[in-house]
Write a protein that binds this DNA or RNA. Structure first.
Lengths: 167, 167
DNA sequence: TCATACTTTCAATACTTTCTGAAAGTTATT
DNA sequence: AATAACTTTCAGAAAGTATTGAAAGTATGA
């Protein structure tokens, strides 16, 4: 396979992966493009490579910066802005986990917790509700605990403890 | 809070959570409804409780069965089909993990692996590409390893090893 | 201050997904 | 075989999301 072909494949795959996980296709593609590029790229470069409009490119670049996945870079003597991505996959995973936790998981878990605060005399329905929601909360508590630890951790924790897990 | 209100809140939260993770809102809501119901429910029941059309109810019930998250149940003397959900959160998480791995992760990882099979003489671009895709694959390998272990595991593994992780 | 080189915004449009309701299909019962 | 009780399908409506391209905005420097 040629580099050009391989790149295209990689960018496409990243786009699909993104769209099935709530990040949109273009955003995934822009990110992939920057991941595999040794140089920082400008908006123009991105537009050209991915065949997308200026508005679209701009929007998704902003969003990626917002997520903390890519960074602006200035080249001296140049007016144009360039963008570069974080290349450490470990760092990337931590950033995404932290963001999603903040944006999506936390508010929902709060909501589920509130729902548990239900009053009334015991009945089959109430008991079932309490049981299910309690289980769910315990689980969510454990899961977010792991997630937190993951977010705060360093590379070593992963390769250390997790490697033991998968052996 | 009253049970009715708490239920509504719970169902809504599950719907939102679903829609931000690639499962649609109604599907999440149907699932939530069945989770907290002590009795199996019929299509009619679900339509009424969630205010959705017959077609929509049917579609999402099928999809949930397909995912292995809910089951048909027959009541003797009744013609109508009833549905019940898996209530063990642990089991639920494992089922979802297994499904998503099969449906989404596996094909993409295959695709990314293929992209790594690139030929050509060494250049800055090629080197960068190889480096990034290698890192990514290592990471994906570890992650799917953990996922596999999780899918195959029993409750004990989680409460045992994972509890140690979060302490 | 003006021209230039860019970046950002936004209304219109295209595209995708979800939902509805009616019609068609299926199975059990008389 | 006819009816009744239910389930499934499907075409079109509605809702939601992404994309474009042009216009507006901003900074640079002659």
């Amino acid at each position: 396979m040629e580099l050009k072909e391989a790149k295209a494949k990689y960018i496409q795959a990243w786009g699909i992966l993104g769209s099935s996980w709530g990040i949109n296709k273009t955003m995934g593609q822009v990110h992939a493009l920057l991941m595999i590029s040794p140089e920082a790229l400008s908006t123009e470069d991105i537009m050209r490579e991915l065949n997308i409009s200026r508005g679209n490119a701009n929007m998704n670049i902003r969003a990626l910066i917002d997520w903390g996945l890519i960074f602006k870079e200035f080249k001296s003597g140049e007016r144009r802005e360039y963008f570069r991505s974080e290349k450490d996959v470990w760092e990337l995973a931590r950033t995404v986990a932290a963001q999603r936790k903040q944006r999506e998981l936390a508010p929902i878990i709060r909501m589920l917790n509130e729902a548990r605060n239900v009053k009334g005399e015991s009945s089959k329905e109430l008991d079932e509700f309490k049981k299910v929601t309690k289980d769910l909360n315990d689980f969510a508590g454990k899961a977010t605990g792991i997630l937190d630890r993951f977010i705060r951790s360093d590379k070593n924790w992963f390769t250390g403890i997790f490697m033991r897990l998968i052996r």
